[in-house]
Amino acid sequence: MRHPVVMGNWKLNGSKEMVTNLLTGLDAALAGVEGVDVAVAPPVMYLDLAQRLISQGNSNIILGAQNVDVNASGAYTGDISPEMLKDFGASHIIIGHSERREYHHESDEFVAQKFAFLKEHGLTPVLCIGESEAQNEAGETVAVCARQLDAVIKTQGVEALNGAIIAYEPIWAIGTGKAATAQQAQEIHAAIRAHIASFSAEVAKNVVIQYGGSVKAGNAAELFAMPDIDGALVGGAALDAEGFAAIAKAAAEAKK
């Protein structure tokens, strides 16, 4: 049975005080919560502090990161390697986020390279896929998601998705306050799973597919009640300990 994963993408937000308060508050709010994996992806600058805070006590929070390079070392100013992330305890690495694709012109092929490099180094890729508002209105949602997935499947084999996480994030719903209805999200998740199943039913059955895009405590339970939605990749709401914990609790409750 698939295990839900709720991950907070902190994006370009943070300070030492904020990281300390957020992780301390989140750890307290999640006390006793079982049945869901909870991860956070702070800016890379704060990985050391986050690792130290998480390692205190009995925290079950998983440490992640927001990006990775496709080189292990060398003359690549400003880039971060998988081994560097591992050195600070990060295991779940977000790649292919629409903001990276748009602002940094990352192609499907480049994202697939990152996916392969993370797997090679024993890290968990959190592969973001999703369509723009124009693509959604043109009825191209499933085709866009399939193309982004196929960049991995057709170069690495569908089995490469084993142990990875897919995050479906409609771009028009990220940070806009708009969100797909639970039924709309379920239909796309089911279509994504069906596309994977066209290569391997076993991989499709087991792969975790999160939903992202204005997920909040108020709509989380309805989303997680859907059979093909396995948790969430959360943006703004992940910056509030109580609100983010409520989302995680909703995922745990829905999958009992």
Rank of each mutant, 00 (worst) to 15 (best):
E17W: 01
H195K: 13
T24G: 11
G212I: 14
D150F: 04
N162M: 02
V33R: 08
L233A: 14
A160Q: 08
P4W: 11
A182L: 12
G243A: 08
G218Y: 04
E159F: 05
S200I: 05
A252R: 05
D108K: 00
A241G: 09
N13Y: 12
Q56I: 01
K205C: 00
H189Q: 10
N60A: 13
Q210Y: 02
S15M: 04
I192F: 12
A138I: 12
P42I: 10
L161E: 11
F115Q: 02
Q51M: 12
A217P: 03
G8P: 08
Y211T: 05
S98R: 02
D27I: 09
K178C: 04
A204S: 14
A72C: 02
C128I: 02
L127Q: 01
G25E: 05
D69L: 02
V207E: 10
A167E: 08
N71V: 15
V68Y: 10
I229L: 08
G236W: 12
K255H: 15
Y103L: 13
G35Q: 03
I80V: 15
G8V: 01
A134P: 05
K154M: 11
I171Q: 06
H3A: 03
A41Q: 07
G64V: 08
I93Y: 15
L12Y: 09
Q156I: 02
G8C: 05
L23F: 10
T20N: 08
H105N: 15
R52N: 13
V70R: 13
N136L: 00
S132F: 09
F244W: 08
A254H: 10
Q148Y: 10
Q186H: 10
L161P: 14
D228G: 11
A220V: 08
L23K: 06
A151V: 06
Q183G: 01
G74K: 12
E131R: 00
E120F: 00
M45F: 15
Q135Y: 01
G236M: 06
A237L: 14
K205S: 11
H105S: 05
I247W: 01
A245V: 10
